[in-house]
């Protein structure tokens, strides 16, 4: 009897492993990829690093028969450029390439050091891409959260042309974005920030390696003589299942001196009013709100230190 059971189980397993079947289209260039998307429509899913999609596929959460492999386009879509007052990051730049670009050597971009060196694990970083992180539209996407703090724009390309969408409007739900099935994310760009500004990203979890974070917060500050000229605060979630900015807290901080009292007021009475958190198996809503308050304080002072320290 036991033997029969074992046999049954083994046949199920072998069938499962055999049924992971799909076809892959390998494009010659960007135009070829866009043409394939136009023809195939929703049946063809673009895959960048695959660190998210292939895992979801294995779990049975996403189903597809055809993939569009974007890796051959990396020649033209992997870069970090400064052009015409804008910082432009190619969508297929991997996280380790972003780290190797040493963009964080400039204090205005120090947030990239936080986001990239705390990103998953070293071997995931070498295939996970910036565009994939944004396109996955998962709340715990470090790079997307940091880019929101820079108020970045997403460039979408299709055969009909290109369009720019502000990243803050790009997410519409968990794993849902404004990207149409025939479009591809090709670039993320943001205005080069002024010299008296900096960013930081703080993620807290039990471990350092492979951490997703109970709460992730990223802040951008522009200070003139200790007075907040511009500020952007981004949390992994403000109530909806995608990264969002804390607009009311930003509004409160703008124009004020960044002192202990002001930061305390902002994080302890303004922020909890506009933030709604969920309870799940990883953490409770109350804990997440408490943690958000503390991390916001830390992040603001960290960013301030970076601006003043001139690192």
């Amino acid at each position: 009897m036991a033997l029969i059971n074992i046999l049954k189980i083994s046949t199920v397993y072998s069938r499962v492993s055999l049924t992971f079947r799909f076809n892959v289209y390998i494009p010659k260039d960007l135009n070829d990829a866009l043409r394939a998307l136009k023809v195939e429509g929703e049946g063809l899913l673009p895959i960048a690093g695959g660190t998210d999609l292939l895992v979801l596929y294995r779990q049975g959460l996403v189903k597809f028969n055809k993939l569009l492999d974007l890796w051959p386009l990396r020649n033209s879509l992997s870069y970090v450029r400064f052009e015409g007052g804008y910082v432009k990051i190619g969508a297929l730049t991997t996280v380790s390439e972003l780290l190797d670009s040493r963009i964080y050597m400039d204090k205005r971009f120090l947030g990239f050091k936080d986001a990239c060196s705390g990103f998953a694990s070293p071997f995931i970083r070498s295939i996970a891409t910036v565009g994939g992180n944004v396109g996955a539209a998962h709340p715990l996407s470090d790079i997307a959260i940091l880019l929101l703090a820079y108020d970045a724009n997403v460039k979408l390309a299709s055969l009909d042309g290109e369009r720019l969408v502000p990243l803050r409007e790009f997410f519409i739900d968990k794993r849902k974005t404004l990207r149409k099935p025939d479009e591809l994310i090709v670039e993320l760009s943001f205005k080069e920030p002024p010299t008296n500004s900096s960013t930081s990203l703080i993620k807290l979890d039990r471990r350092v390696g492979h951490s997703m974070g109970y709460v992730i917060v990223s802040t951008y500050l522009e200070l003139i003589d200790d007075i907040v000229k511009d500020v952007r605060i981004v949390f992994d979630s403000m109530g909806k299942p995608y990264p969002e900015r804390a607009y009311k807290t930003e509004e409160y901080l703008r124009g004020k001196t960044l002192s202990e009292d002001v930061v305390k007021e902002a994080s302890e009475s303004i922020l909890p009013n506009e933030m709604r958190r969920i309870t799940d198996y990883r953490s409770s809503a109350e804990y997440r709100v408490e943690l958000s308050k503390v991390l916001l304080k830390r992040a603001l002072f960290k960013t301030k230190e970076r601006i003043l320290g001139g690192a």
Binding site: V24, I26, I47, G49, G50, T51, L54, V55, L67, D69, W71, S96, P122, F123, I124, S126, I127
Partner: peptide, 13 residues
């Protein structure tokens, strides 16, 4: 010259 998890890389890649 980059470490990659071979379980998440398609062979055609």
């Amino acid at each position: 010259n980059r470490p990659v998890p071979s379980c998440l890389v398609l062979a055609v890649r």
